[in-house]
Structure formats: C-alpha cells, structure tokens
Nucleic acid binder design. Sequence first.
RNA 1: UGCCUGAUAGUAUAAUGGUAGUACGACGGUUUUUGGUACCGUUUGUCUAGGUUCGAAUCCUGGUCGGGCAACCA
Length: 554
Amino acid sequence: MSEERSLNFIEEIVEEDIAAGKNEGRVLTRFPPEPNGYLHIGHAKSICLNFGLAKKYNGATNLRFDDTNPVKEDVEYVDSIKDDVRWLGFNWANELYASDYFDKLYEFAVELIKKGLAYVDDSTPAEIAAQKGTPTEPGTPNQYRSRSIIENLELFAEMKAGKYPDGAKVLRAKLDLAAPNMHLRDPLMYRIKHAHHHRTGDKWCIYPMYDFAHGQSDAIEQITHSVCTLEFVPHRPLYDWFINKLNIFPSKQYEFARLNLNYTVMSKRKLLQLVEEKHVDGWDDPRMPTISGLRRRGYTPASIREFCERIGVAKRENMIDVGLLEFCIREDLNKTAWRRMAVLDPVKLVITNYPEGQTEIFSGENNPEAEDGDGSREFPFSRELWIERDDFMEVPAKKYFRLGVGLMVRLKNAYIIKGEDFVKDADGNITEIHCSYIPESRSGNDTSGINVKGTIHWVSVAHAKTAEVRLYDRLFKVEDPGNEDGDFKDYINPDSLQIIPNAYIEPDLANAVSGTPVQFMRKGYFTLDKYSIPDKLIFNRTVTLKDGWAKKGS
RNA sequence: UGCCUGAUAGUAUAAUGGUAGUACGACGGUUUUUGGUACCGUUUGUCUAGGUUCGAAUCCUGGUCGGGCAACCA
C-alpha cells in the first residue's frame, strides 16, 4: 500500500472532477502519438501518466494515432508504437486513428463555414504569415476573409474534390486577427496535400491541421481529460473555441512539462537524424533513449514505469539526471538477475602450487538477493584462470584490496590466493600473474582462519567460453546537446560504444536466454543483443554496477 | 518591447495560511565471499523586494530569471 504518495496536479484535478460528479465520474484518457517516429522515454512518461490515470480511477485509455499529416507518417511507426506501449505493460481500450474521423471533421468544417466562422483563403504561406502581424502588432484581414458563405462552401467542396493543387488554398477559422495569442489569428484548419495516406489511401487530398483534429477527436471519443505537454498551452483557447462553436462533447485539455533527460536528445527530429545519418544502429540502438533502444539495452518495463513514477508530474521545465534511470534498472535487476562470472579485460593468473591438469567443480548461488539463492550453478576451477586486468596492481594503491604481490584476495566461490610474482612483455605490459592458493580456504569449507577484504571473479582458462561484449556509455558528451552552440551532433560521444570481441565467460553463460538479464559479477547487468546467435554470443551491457572505488579514484 | 507559463537542496518532487519533507546524488559508517545489495548517519533549499496576517513556500503588488508562442508540423 503505497498510498502515502501525494497526488500530482493532474490527479488532483481528476479527483476534484470525480468528487464534483463531472462526467458521472467517468475517466477516459488517450495517448495520441503521431506515427512519424519511434516512441522514446519521454513518451513513456506520457503513457504512464495517461494509462496510470485511467487505471487509478477505474477509467480507460484510448490509443489514438494522430495521423493528419500523411507525408510524414508511416505504418512502420504505427506498429512500433503499438509494440512499445504493450511492452511497457499497458492495454488500450480502443485503437483509433484521427483519420477515422476525416469524414466527421469535414462535416464540422462545413458547419463552421455555414456559421460564418471559417473561410477559404487563396493567399500564399508567406502572405498569410505577413498578414498575421507580429506579437506586438495585430494582423490585417485580406480580401478572402469576407467571402460569402456560399462561395466558401463551394470552394471548400472543390478543395476536397481535388480541383486545386497543393498549397493553392486553405480553410481558415474566422477568429480574431488582433488576438494577442498568435494561435487565434485565424488559424488554418485544412490544407491541400495530394498525398497518399497510410490508412485512407487516396480518398483525401485535404487534411485537417492538428488544431482542427485533436480537440474534435477527443470530443468524438468523449475523452474526459486530454493530457498533453506544455507547448500546447497556447493552443488551449483554440481547442475550447472549436468545441464550443461546434457544441460537441467538452473534453478538457491539461498540460504538464515534458521529460528531459541529460546527455541525450529527446526530439523525434533529432533522433531521426541520428538514425538516418547512421550515427547509431537504428531506432533501437541500445544508446538511443527510445523505448525500443532501452529494451534492446536490457531495460525492463517495470524499471521504466518506476522511473516515470519517481520523476513526478509538474508544470516546470526539468532536466532529469540519467542516473535516476540507472538507479531504477539496477534496483529491479538486482532482485531478479542471476549472477555469473565473465572477464572482460583478461590477464592470465597461474596458481603455482595448484596441480597441473587438476580440475575442481565449484558452485555459486544464482542470486544472493533471493530467498534460497534462487538455486545455483557449477563452474570448473583449474590451475590457470582469467582474471580482470585491473584486479591486479603492480604497485598497489593505499586501500586497494585486490591482488598485488604479497596481497591476498579471495577468488569468488573458490580459494584465497596470495600474489607472488608477475611477468611482463617487452612493452612492459603484464602478461601473467603468479600466485599461490591456500588449500584450507576452500569456499564453503574454509578452515584457514584468514580474512581478506577483497573478492574477485575469474574464469578457468581451459573451460572458458567466449562472447562479444558491448559496453555503452552516454551518447553525448554534454548534458543538453540540443542547447549547445552549433550542431547537436558535434557533441556525440565518440566512445559511446566499446566492443570487446572476445570476453571470457563461465561455461553456464553459453545457456544464456534472450530477454533474460544476467549480472556479470562486479561488472554490471547484461542482456543478449538481438543479433546474438548461439555460435556467437553478443552481450549488451545494460548498466554498470555502482562502483564506490572507481568514484574515489576520479 | 506582445501573450502564455513557470520558479522549493546538486537533480527531481511534496507541503493546498500553521514543525519545509521524500527520493536520487554526494559524503561518512556498519554488514558483506560482488568495493554490489542491505542498513545507519551527515550535508545542502523556499528567486528577489515590499505588503496582508498572530503566522506566508503558499495570498497580494513590483522586479529578476527560465521556458513556450508569429510551421499549409504535431
């Protein structure tokens, strides 16, 4: 019962509405993506909000594609959006499309023309812009504004019939050219586009603008709370105006601040650019803040939902630290991911007093966080092991409690060893470390009485399997690449992907299952990439483990 | 020099005229066969100037700073 949580301002509004008996207590929200790109973590915030509201107040949520601009939209995006919403764990009441309402919207437009509230304008885009004036100067009406209702009706019908080329005419609301809110200066309702639509095909050559589609779609569906982001605040008077003049269901619009995450970009335009210019491996590149990218990276739906819960909902601009997202996935995976050993940057360790050719089988629990360790698996131990290069220091730093000459450390689930010596090549790189082991320190049966501070992971050289491991870092070098001088792409982090072609993994890891996260002990959480095959395993690092030691170093 | 919006620890987010709290981060400690986890502790905040009030983060006025708005995009 986490009912301790205080309400966000939208939940407050909903509760007030319910208490006041508005809409008979009914709550119906919608999630209205335009199918012109893949969903990202910012959309996840909106999805969690809209679907969460409905869930909390016994309502429902429609998935409505805002597909009023055929030249930018595509079924590929429709499909990915549905996948992503489902993957996040939400079910929509109805799958709908603004294009379902094109006929109705056309009737609405005719109705407004008949009421003298809309007119056909033959001006060019430049002329219309000029006639709109500026924020400090009112706009000026043109000759078309006073066309008769009859003429407007005829022209609009001709627009629909395809008599005019793209851009020749538009339908505009007759509102207020002097309005201080620029959106009210006779906004466009329809434009001519002889374009093929992904659902309506070639039926239409005129398409409604957002402002003449969204509110009416909400009203048609009887959406009670239409939740969108802050940039639509100035559109709200228009939203209400159309609903009022059309005398249709009074949906209400509420706006919240969109999510900004540091070290990434969140605009579909920029994400599209990264994809098209091949800076990343598609929309689902694990470095992308897209839902599909996060999924491929190894994020879980629960971790993303938790993240959206923690960031809250308010109206002030915000910049969330990506560290919070990382906290959420660690918190989730810590409880569920099985532990395995893998050596990413190997150096050979030779146990000089361990018999050559001997092999012992050790076991380790799958997850120390689980009740009974969640079972266990076995792995072989022998005289030569791979260990992590940075688990040995030629000249140990103070408080370094791993391996060094004369230093003792435990090999996880095996013996305590003592560093004895090391071998270097001509370039001065350490190629081999020699140590001795304490036979009485066998894991689970330790009678040595020795206490060591450090424990390191290892993989037997003779038994190790290999895998490609991909380490990801933030995609951009700066917190807010979209707000820096110059092109945001100038700030791409050149080291955002590091590929380790041949990491050594413990034998059991050969059985890794796609979609099942695993923790490489002391290294982080990993998941199989979509291109991984049994003959060539590829692991993506989802996130590192928190590393208190590394932090002090830097 | 128009209109709309917003401003609470480093980052987010509560407190709805009555003790400024929570989370993440940072820092310190305990436990630990993951320098992980868990647990404990510390640190840092109401943009500013007035006003109303017994009492203001909250209400009022002025200012400052941030964001948005003049696409045949959504």
